[in-house]
């Protein structure tokens, strides 16, 4: 991960220190979920859904609201690959690396994707258009190689040519 690690003992930050959009995202997430049992994952999902990532500076407010230490929240955020600690590019492309897709050429597609984008997994292209992430199964194992673009745009039987076309479309989309 290219993310900057948090300092070991960050100064206590309150929601007042957050950027307005971050403060709103945290407040909405806490309003919706803080009273639910085991609320931390739903809260982190809500923040990431709104901001595209979980900014490290939001962890203190979340920890305070749930009566957890910041270390506990940090531990949870860093445990789960889905939660990002840095903003993604405009489009996140999740390329399946698992066996069923390997059987249909996913290894070659992975090499092609990294080469043509000029980045490795967990990185974003210099123009900020595309973030490439590995994913371990999208449940499309009968029609691989599989690629998930954005939240829910699933693609089947992705050839290198099809991948290039999707990248071009993503670059012109915004």
């Amino acid at each position: 991960m290219a993310a900057t690690p948090l300092p070991l003992n960050p100064p206590s930050r309150r929601s007042a220190d957050l950027a307005p959009e971050q403060a709103r995202a945290v407040a909405a997430a806490l309003d919706a979920h803080r009273d639910a049992p085991g609320a931390l994952l739903p809260i982190l999902h809500a923040v990431q859904d709104r901001l595209g990532y979980v900014p490290p500076e939001t962890l203190a407010s979340i920890a305070d609201a749930l009566n957890l230490t910041r270390a506990e929240v940090y531990g949870v955020v860093t445990f789960y690959p889905h939660f990002r600690r840095t903003p993604p590019g405009r489009r996140v492309m999740q390329l399946c690396r698992a066996e069923a897709c390997q059987a249909l050429g996913a290894r070659a597609l992975e090499a092609h994707a990294k080469r043509t984008l000029g980045i490795d997994f967990h990185q974003t292209t210099a123009d900020g258009a595309i973030t490439l992430e590995p994913v371990y199964c999208l449940g499309n194992c009968g029609c691989g190689p599989s690629l998930l673009v954005g939240r829910d745009e699933l693609h089947a039987r992705v050839t290198p040519e099809a991948f290039d076309a999707l990248v071009a479309a993503a670059r012109t989309a915004l």
Binding site: L41, P42, L44, H45, Y80, P81, H82, F83
Partner: peptide, 8 residues
């Protein structure tokens, strides 16, 4: 429904 977060 509760969502996981990418951990096998």
């Amino acid at each position: 429904v509760r969502l996981g977060a990418g951990a096998y």
